[in-house]
Design a protein around this nucleic acid. Structure first.
Lengths: 339, 339
DNA sequence: TTGTAGGCGTTATCAC
DNA sequence: GTGATAACGCCTACAA
């Protein structure tokens, strides 16, 4: 009772003595089906090892069983973590993961992505920060009927379209931690212009204000999330009007840059300067001194994003909407030395 | 003369007053076509902005216009570099990139990958090390008619199926560099069991032998390519029978682990111990002291792999078969101090 | 609850 | 060279 080649829906139908459509209903778990027929057809499917052909389904349904991660060149660890999360979310399903890089500064970015979506027709897409903040791309997906989830740090879309981390609270907590240790002059290295860095800065300012500590211009330096910009920013803060006793950097790479900057100025970490980063990249625990940092739930966010996309209506729209970052205390923070 | 919805091959055929098949021939650049018809059809295609539907092609051709990177959890930077290379290779084409992780130790790995290939039917796949060394997977692709390219460090397949780096030569050169500086007791931190680490070790042994330097057991420590294993291996070498004056680590993560190990023993880098890594991860230039390391042409290899896959017969089978690694000299290497 | 006919958009076969 | 016609394998109407 074998079939030659890979079995198709026709083989199943023929052997089970039902129509193609009935088999199709079984595959798609249609509710209007007699239990008897379903069991019978499922038996045949199992017997001959039938697996629906995704290409055919894609043609008929006008969408591929693929989730695409659309990103604008974030750092490697972040990207891989997102990929891992999405893969966890689609594990055991027929879905696959595609990766599509885009250039945020391209004037044709919307058309570029439209082209990609019309070509590959992914079932859904996950937008990574910072392009996740682009509302045009969300509208584009809507108009194309493509599901999407945006990884963000503020509620800039409906719950079903976002997964969110509480960057502001996390930084607020981290800075409070520094304050509790006795630090008062706390420098802040800001990330590039977009929402997530702004949230982080807001958390910093909130903690400072609450403690009645002034935030001067020279206590804030801007970086680009890169190591090099962290060095520059670190030097700017150290050489500024009054040397801070602690620095919060908006990501680990810049924090490590600040570590190097301190070393260049002959400052010992953490005794001469406490530093906190953000991301909890593997790197942060590999350097010396190991870096106290905020752990960002990237994998969980990405997994939630994938789950929301393939879950359809049944999925909890609030899944992953409020994931928490937590402070990982390591060796780069101590109370300020009384000089 | 517009069409409603997205134009299809039928619209083109109707407007150009030719058959579908002729349009198909134009798209696929069939040689047996009158110049006149081609130009005419191409004009219509341009006019109405027709773009072939990949899903339909996928169904008819039984393969998707996708390249899959199949990997077994290599480190983040490596994976992202490979992805970047593949994306560079397919830029401007209709191809997309999929990512498929597998578990090297799974007893069902071949079936897992078979399932993936039969489901997504990628046009071709790129196998990353170390699973690129698995011949079964190559046979699997052959039997399925899936193109494949393996990223390897030794010629274990036909040229058209590999892209290769000269790990052995690169390490040989790096160790010779240490020897030229006057080092004689040179420790080696080996990678986990697979071909590429073996090649690297071979390069080390070759350089030592040529210089008439003995290679004792206690000069070699085994790691797992992780930071932690680098720390352990570093400690083992330092605490061994005779402390080396230089260490070559088979990747950057372990090299950085060795840096930390040295620090734990109160040894100053590079004065007390020179260290060379392998990979040239961004990290290596961000730590202090910056790490002398071997730059591995990962992006180039991956790009060549993608080019070979989509290039078909016309592609040079030897493309990317002999890409060179080069030594990046930074601050972690100095001549041994005469104590 | 189940089946029939037709469509999704392309390529392959084989005549002309 | 070119064009009917039939795959490719599934799904959606609509009918029964």
């Amino acid at each position: 009772m074998t079939v030659n080649g890979k079995p198709t829906i026709n083989d199943v139908a023929r052997i089970a003595k039902v129509s193609k459509k009935t088999v199709s209903r079984v595959i798609n778990k249609s509710p209007l089906l007699s239990e008897k027929t379903r069991v019978q057809v499922e038996q045949v499917i199992a017997d001959i090892g039938y697996v629906p052909n995704p290409q055919a389904r894609a043609l008929a349904l006008r969408r591929n069983f693929i989730i695409a991660a659309i990103h604008d060149n974030p750092n490697a660890q972040f990207l891989v973590n997102v990929q891992q999360g999405i893969l966890e979310g689609i594990a055991g399903t027929e879905f696959g993961l595609m990766v599509e890089p885009v250039d945020r500064n391209s004037p044709t970015i919307v058309d570029d992505i439209r082209g990609f979506l019309e070509r590959q027709r992914p079932y859904g897409v996950v937008f990574l920060p910072p392009i996740s903040e682009n509302d045009e791309l969300a509208s584009l997906c809507d108009s194309l009927g493509t599901k999407y989830v945006r990884m963000v740090s503020r509620e800039l879309d409906k719950p079903e379209h976002i997964v969110m981390s509480n960057d502001r609270e996390a930084v607020y907590g981290a800075v409070k931690h520094l304050i509790a240790m006795g630090h008062e002059k706390i420098g802040f290295i800001e990330g590039p212009d977009s929402l997530s860095p702004a949230e982080r800065r807001a958390g910093y300012e909130q903690a400072m204000e609450e403690a009645g500590l002034p935030v001067h211009d020279w206590m804030i330096a801007k970086g680009r999330y890169t190591f090099e910009s962290g060095v520059e920013a670190g030097l700017a803060l150290i050489d500024g009007e009054a040397r801070p006793t602690a620095i919060f950097a908006s990501n680990d790479e810049m924090a490590i840059g600040a570590v190097i900057a301190a070393r260049r100025r002959g400052i010992e970490i953490p005794r001469g300067l406490s530093i906190i980063g953000f991301d909890d990249t593997p790197l942060s625990s590999h350097i010396w001194p190991s870096l106290t940092t905020v752990r960002w739930p990237i994998v969980e966010m990405a997994k939630a994003a994938a789950t929301k996309i393939i879950g359809g209506e049944e999925a909890d729209p609030n899944l992953g909407v409020k994931l928490s970052s937590t402070l990982m205390e390591r060796d780069s923070v101590v109370p300020p030395s009384r000089v």
